[in-house]
Simulated assay, not measured.
Amino acid sequence: MTAPVFRFAPSPNGELHLGHALSALTNEKIAASVGGRLLLRIEDIDVTRCTPEFEAGIFRDLAWLGITYEQPVRRQSDHFAEYEAALERLKKDELVYPAFMSRGDIRGAIMEHEAKGKAWPRDPDGAPVYPGADKQMSKRERQRRIDAGAPFAWRLDTAAALARLPVELNWREWTNEAMDGSAEITANPLQWGDVIIARREIPTSYHLSVVIDDALQGVSHVVRGLDLYFATSVQRLLQQALGLPQPGYFHHRLVLGPDGRKLSKSQRDTGLAALREAGETPGTVKAMLGL
């Protein structure tokens, strides 16, 4: 029987904080309880914000917490060719389209719509759904704009991808850390609209790279924070569209700041490096997290 595979996948665009510690420790705990393997993946497709210094900090923090993982570590920046191959498949299947609307164009379309007394739909993160006006553009006009150097991003035609599914889209969500109970959750990717799948300068996005990585690494159990719960709908759609295996999911609680919001890398007082410098120990960090 194949051992379950878990992964902790931080981005080196800032210092790890208590929320990351909770996720890493929860992955380690559950993996150990079910005889699973734990992988570390560095999600560094954002080559402008991710730095070697922040990556080195990830390794230091995980070593300080006593978390061990298998080698080698996968770095997304080493695998753009694999993501581009998946993008080309989506292009061939006509499930993505070049989207040329700028932020100003999007704001203008929304203002025009709302001026008529109609609310504009927003995604689960609160951002306005992409208008998709250029989805109706002819192939000839699209190519003309691309050849002329117009800025664009590749967006998923969510409705078209859903229409090709033979069955209802769902995922398995474990209901507790013991993984002794689960529920089938109906996915709703339409609430996200047409998400960005790749950009002209980077042939991937978070959604595309994460499903490719999970498939290639044989990840069977995705354990991550509740802030990514709704994103699972988009990722399940991509998995189905690309014929990728479906992992199970467990979305754990979030660590919230004094303002009731989830922690961010800009809040340095909750950073693991700052806590270590202040004299905290792995034991006191675990106590802070209720572990």
Results as ranks from 00 to 15, higher is better:
residue 221 H to R: 15
residue 76 Q to T: 00
residue 44 D to H: 09
residue 59 F to K: 12
residue 286 K to Q: 15
residue 288 M to Y: 15
residue 271 G to E: 02
residue 286 K to H: 14
residue 183 A to W: 03
residue 83 Y to W: 09
residue 38 L to W: 01
residue 125 D to M: 11
residue 284 T to I: 11
residue 255 V to Y: 13
residue 279 G to N: 13
residue 237 L to V: 13
residue 174 W to Y: 12
residue 252 H to Q: 07
residue 162 L to A: 03
residue 68 T to P: 06
residue 230 F to A: 15
residue 289 L to V: 10
residue 113 H to W: 12
residue 57 G to M: 06
residue 249 Y to V: 03
residue 57 G to K: 02
residue 274 A to Q: 15
residue 128 P to E: 06
residue 45 I to L: 01
residue 28 E to C: 00
residue 85 A to C: 08
residue 197 I to L: 10
residue 48 T to C: 02
residue 226 L to E: 13
residue 270 T to M: 02
residue 177 E to G: 08
residue 232 T to E: 05
residue 182 S to K: 09
residue 125 D to C: 07
residue 33 S to I: 01
residue 270 T to C: 05
residue 114 E to M: 14
residue 51 T to W: 00
residue 275 L to K: 07
residue 64 W to E: 03
residue 217 Q to P: 04
residue 125 D to N: 14
residue 57 G to S: 12
residue 264 S to Y: 06
residue 140 R to S: 11
residue 93 D to G: 09
residue 174 W to V: 01
residue 291 L to N: 05
residue 170 N to V: 08
residue 38 L to C: 01
residue 6 F to W: 02
residue 239 Q to A: 10
residue 97 Y to H: 13
residue 265 K to W: 02
residue 136 Q to D: 12
residue 147 D to S: 12
residue 252 H to F: 04
residue 26 T to H: 00
residue 46 D to W: 00
residue 196 I to F: 08
residue 194 D to H: 06
residue 272 L to T: 05
residue 45 I to T: 00
residue 283 G to N: 15
residue 238 L to W: 13
residue 207 H to T: 11
residue 282 P to T: 14
residue 272 L to C: 09
residue 115 A to W: 08
residue 282 P to F: 11
residue 180 D to Q: 11
residue 182 S to C: 08
residue 28 E to P: 00
residue 262 K to N: 09
residue 209 S to L: 04
residue 220 S to K: 13
residue 116 K to G: 15
residue 60 R to I: 01
residue 238 L to S: 10
residue 19 G to D: 03
residue 58 I to T: 03
residue 132 G to Y: 12
residue 15 E to V: 02
residue 138 S to C: 09
residue 171 W to H: 06
residue 22 L to V: 01
residue 186 T to G: 08
residue 55 E to F: 09
residue 252 H to P: 02
residue 243 G to F: 12
residue 254 L to P: 10
residue 86 A to M: 06
residue 231 A to N: 14
residue 37 R to Q: 11
residue 220 S to D: 09
residue 146 I to W: 08
residue 19 G to M: 02
residue 82 E to Q: 15
residue 197 I to W: 08
residue 211 V to S: 08
residue 93 D to R: 13
residue 58 I to A: 02
residue 194 D to Q: 10
residue 173 E to C: 04
residue 281 T to M: 14
residue 155 R to F: 02
residue 145 R to C: 04
residue 175 T to V: 07
residue 207 H to M: 11
residue 78 D to C: 09
residue 150 A to V: 08
residue 268 R to Q: 12
residue 182 S to R: 08
residue 189 P to R: 05
residue 219 V to Y: 07
residue 234 V to H: 11
residue 74 R to K: 04
residue 80 F to P: 02
residue 253 R to K: 10
residue 222 V to N: 05
residue 245 P to C: 11
residue 15 E to S: 10
residue 133 A to K: 14
residue 289 L to C: 09
residue 151 P to K: 07
residue 87 L to R: 03
residue 48 T to N: 04
residue 33 S to D: 08
residue 40 L to V: 09
residue 164 R to W: 04
residue 96 V to Q: 08
residue 55 E to V: 11
residue 15 E to H: 10
residue 46 D to K: 00
residue 259 D to I: 05
residue 275 L to Q: 06
residue 236 R to K: 09
residue 203 P to L: 03
residue 272 L to D: 03
residue 42 I to P: 01
residue 178 A to N: 06
residue 185 I to N: 02
residue 31 A to M: 00
residue 185 I to L: 03
